[in-house]
């Protein structure tokens, strides 16, 4: 904790951690000692570590370990990441960022269970959590959280930087310029959102048609967003869906809402036959369906 005059002032020390199977090369980059073969019995390890890209920075060298592709990035990009972090944290409540420590061969997975470790990624696509650890996507929110935490707790705070990992397996490079990170403050459309809005949305004219289209394998998942919203207009807010087997009602999991049921149809592709509707005014309060 720093600066007695301002209780919000927090000194944040960030440690970038390297797992034990890495080596430092002459030029300061990182290489894996062995190809990183992934096996089920290492699951606990790989799941937490991947797709974390781990940086180790100090005054002399800036290192990156890309776990999957083992590619090093250049100093400039890493410096840009550091600048961006500094910019955010120095801008308001923090007097100092990147008082960097070094910790080779650390079991960094253990940091994810520590309350003083925070995960940050500027990319919303990187998910909402790793294990049970929340990923902060908003620097302002992280700052507030850190300030709150630091007022109640003493000691070092760790921030693991968590860059976006694309499904194809390649790790996206960190932000190259301050301008890119500006978008964190004023979030623009993410690529996923952009896809949704640009994808032509399906519509339907009857409940039966909604079910048919939701379950269709021929309609892309991204085009079913409109269907999932549109079908809600047929139902009361607390309407339930009940499956009928052998002419008997069967609930699986518990009461299922129409929105959950619509989502499930996108996955199971089951054909739905409407058995009975219970109405409340003009809307359906209970729907019995038979799945085929």
């Amino acid at each position: 904790m720093q600066s007695c005059g301002d209780p919000k002032m927090v000194k944040v020390e960030v440690e970038f951690l390297l797992p034990s199977d890495v080596n430092l090369t002459k030029d300061g980059f990182v290489s894996l000692i062995e190809p990183h073969e992934v096996t089920d019995d290492k699951e606990e390890f790989i799941v937490v570590s991947y797709p974390l890209t781990i940086y180790r920075m100090d005054t002399e060298r800036k290192l990156k370990l890309d776990y999957l592709n083992n590619k090093a990035v250049n100093y400039e990009k890493l410096a840009a990441v550091k600048r961006d972090f500094n910019k955010y944290f120095e801008a308001s409540v923090f007097d100092s960022v990147f008082t960097l420590g070094s910790k080779n061969n650390s079991d960094f997975t253990s940091y994810l269970t520590m309350p003083n470790c925070f995960l940050y990624s500027e990319k919303p696509e990187s998910g909402s959590e790793i294990g049970e650890k929340r990923i902060f996507h908003d620097a302002t929110e992280l700052r507030t959280e850190l300030a709150t935490y630091a007022q109640k707790n003493k000691g070092k705070i760790f921030i693991l930087y968590y860059p976006y990992h694309s499904p194809s397996g390649s790790t996206e490079e960190p932000a190259e310029s301050v301008n890119e990170v500006e978008s964190v403050k004023k979030p623009t459309s993410t690529s996923n959102k952009a896809n949704v809005s640009s994808t032509s949305q399906e519509s339907a004219n009857s409940l039966e048609e909604y079910f048919q289209k939701l379950a269709s394998r021929d309609i892309p998942y991204e085009s079913k967003t409109g269907l999932k919203k549109g079908i809600l207009s047929y139902f009361t807010n607390d309407a339930t869906i009940v499956r009928v087997n052998n002419n008997k009602e069967t609930l699986a999991g518990g009461n299922q809402s129409i929105s959950s049921y619509a989502e499930s149809l996108c996955s199971t592709h089951r054909r739905v036959v409407i058995v009975e509707k219970q109405m409340s005014d003009t809307k359906i309060s209970k729907l019995k369906v038979k799945e085929e």
Partner: peptide, 15 residues
Amino acid sequence: NCLDGLKEKKCWVLK
């Protein structure tokens, strides 16, 4: 306990 339309009742649920 589960909802049967707008009413709550006991029902069998598979989990």
